[in-house]
Every structure is written in structure tokens, then in C-alpha cells.
Design a binder for these strands. Sequence first.
DNA 1: ATAATATACTAACGTATGTTAGCGAAATAA
DNA 2: TTATTTCGCTAACATACGTTAGTATATTAT
Lengths: 197, 197
Amino acid sequence: MARIKTEKNISRKEVIVAKAASLFREKGFKAASMRDLAEAVGVEAASLYNHIKSKTELLHELCFSVANRFMHNIDEIERENSSSLEKIEKLLRFHINEMIHHYEEVYVSDREWKHLADPYLSNYQNQRRIYRKRFASIIETGIREKEIKKIDAPTAVLIMLHAISGIESWHRSTQRISAAELEENMITILAGGLTNK
Amino acid sequence: MARIKTEKNISRKEVIVAKAASLFREKGFKAASMRDLAEAVGVEAASLYNHIKSKTELLHELCFSVANRFMHNIDEIERENSSSLEKIEKLLRFHINEMIHHYEEVYVSDREWKHLADPYLSNYQNQRRIYRKRFASIIETGIREKEIKKIDAPTAVLIMLHAISGIESWHRSTQRISAAELEENMITILAGGLTNK
DNA sequence: ATAATATACTAACGTATGTTAGCGAAATAA
DNA sequence: TTATTTCGCTAACATACGTTAGTATATTAT
């Protein structure tokens, strides 16, 4: 009888969620079926329901675990005593590294959250809005203190966040530079576009 | 008996394709059903098949009409006698305006192309690859001529293209700056991140 | 060893989906 | 007007989907 393999301290549910991330990334949430997922896990579809409540629950788990990580990070950065530009650079580096090392989760929560059902959906959308506002107000402080060009802060946020989601292409490209090089290039271009001189 | 309304020089098929763009943008290709589309058009689902071959054909039409526009544009720009930086700025402005004025089509072709079926899929992927290579080599020329910072050109391309796809958020935001302001802000940040000094 | 729990299986359900067949009505051409 | 073509309708199909019920088999606790 097939059995879901687990390593120490990893529950069977976590194995399923991880495979779901990979599958949802590859095919999209709607196009990925529970039978696909079952096959990836090495089990029959019905067996998954001994560990999870529903397909959407998998999406909840992914979206909110990612959202929480980003929220905690911006909490910390806001508390720091550093210049706006330094704060922005730290935010960017966090985003970049999340996208490099937790690619599938982050990608899925970024692209597939539309398929969440209320109340999770509105909750998630709210968190997103708030996060962007907080990001934008760091930029606005930087503008007031002349560290940063006079630009529309929400537009800058939108550029930064989406630019980083482009790391998706890096993951799938055949000839790719190292993760460290990628990080430095992105910081150079993105921070360079903000700096006042 | 219901009938698809057409204005002069717009075929019924074109009406369907346009509504499909809007629906695929809103729900995603897989989650948007032919019955949804039929309702949006004001007709029964089966009636759609008097005008189109299949659901995927709708996606083909959208993806390749967008891809062709971008290809023709880069053709023209490559032929010009201008600096690399000017060429890049023109490319960016074209992308930005496409994203502003043909939002739904462009968005769909950017996010939903995965659901194309071969041979369209590989064809589309090829075009994308080629487009990015051409974009990157304009940047590389700029670097050689010291107009542009020493950066990894493919990374720069990936940043630019994804940053612009962030205009999606602009469309859906409640308080938004004008299209012209958006364009200028994006150019300031993106071109500013490349320029050598 | 026995009991209890966790996990997997088979079978099946109701529903939604893309699409086709066949017929009638409306628009257009003769 | 009549003939032809275009277009929309109802009905139905096969398939795929998420999920549940009920049962059997491992694993763990006593």
C-alpha cells in the first residue's frame, strides 16, 4: 500500500502543500487537478482528504504563509533606524531572496490568489493593499528627505514588486547567472532608478 | 431571438474575442467558461461555435495578435538611427502604452499563454525568447558604447518587461494618476536605473 | 497481543465543462 | 417573392472534476 513519505518534522500535510505549490505554479490553480496532485504525491486522489479539507485550503495555506512572511519582514524594517533608501534596499533584497528560494510558493500566492474564496479573498486583498501602502510611505519619506527622486510612490512600488516577480523567468531560463549576481543586478537597476543622483 | 450586436467593420467573431479577453483577464483562461462568455455576449453557449472553432482558438487569436504588434514595433525600432538609450526608451513607451490602452489583451497573452496547445505553444514561446534576445542585444550595445551601466542585459530585460506588466495594478487601483503621468514616472525610474550617470 | 488510531483504497456521487447535432428563424441575394 | 446563407436555439453527449462513504490495512499505544 502506497504511503506518503515524510522526513523528520515534516507532516504529510506539509508534503502535500509543497507538491501543490509546485503543481499550481506549473499549471495554474484551476488547471491543476486533485488527481494530478495525488499522482505527484504517489497516492490516490481520495487519500489526500485524510490530510486536507479541500483544494482551496491548499491555496489558503500557500497564500497566507507567504503573506505572513512579508508582513513580519516589513514590521522589522519599519522599526529600524536607517535611511529610507537603506530600508527600501532591504525590502527589495528580501523580496528577491524570497523569490529565489521560495519560488513556487511566492509565485503561486502572487498569481493565483484570485481563486481564493471569501472571506480569505478580501482578507488577502486587504493585506496586499496595506503592504503596498507601507512600502509607498517609506518611499515618500525618502522623497521628502531628498534621498529619492520626485516620483509617484505607488507607481514606484508597483514597478519594484512586479520587476521582482520577473525572477520567474530567471528560474526557467537555461543560461542563468548566479543567484548572487541576479540579486546585485536587480538592486543596481531598481535602487539606481530611485536614487537622487 | 438574441443577436450579437456589431458596429460597422467589426465582425461578430471580433466581438466574441474582445469579450473573451475581458473574461480571461478577470477569471483566468481555465476558470472562464464558454457559458460565462456566452452570457457576456448575450447569446447561448452553443451559438458561439457559429463564429469560432474552439475556446483555445480565442486564446490563439489574443496571444498572436499581441505578439505580432510587439514584433512589428521592435522591427521598426531596430531599423532606426538612434542611440541605444533612445531605442530602449521607445521600446518601453510602446510597452507602456500597449498595457494602458490594450490592457486586457496584453495582460491575457502575458499570463495565460501557458494554456496554448502545441504547436501554438512552442511557437509563442519561441517568439518570446527571440523578442527578449533582441531587446537584450540593444541593451548590450548601449553598454559597449558606455551609455548604459554595466549590468546583465537579460536581467535588465526581465525587470523592464515585468515592471511594465505591473500597470495591471494601476488599472484596478481606485486613486490613480493619469496615463501620461504613469508613463513619465515609469520611464524616469526604469530608464534612470539603466543610464550611466 | 490487543486495541485504537492514522492512513490508504475502491467506488461512486453530483456538477460543470467544451462541444456537436439538428432545427428554426432572421438576414441577404436572386 | 423566392432561394440561400447566416445565425441562434434546444437538447444532449462525453469527459473531467472535487469530494464523500465505506472499507481495509498499516502504524502506534496499551
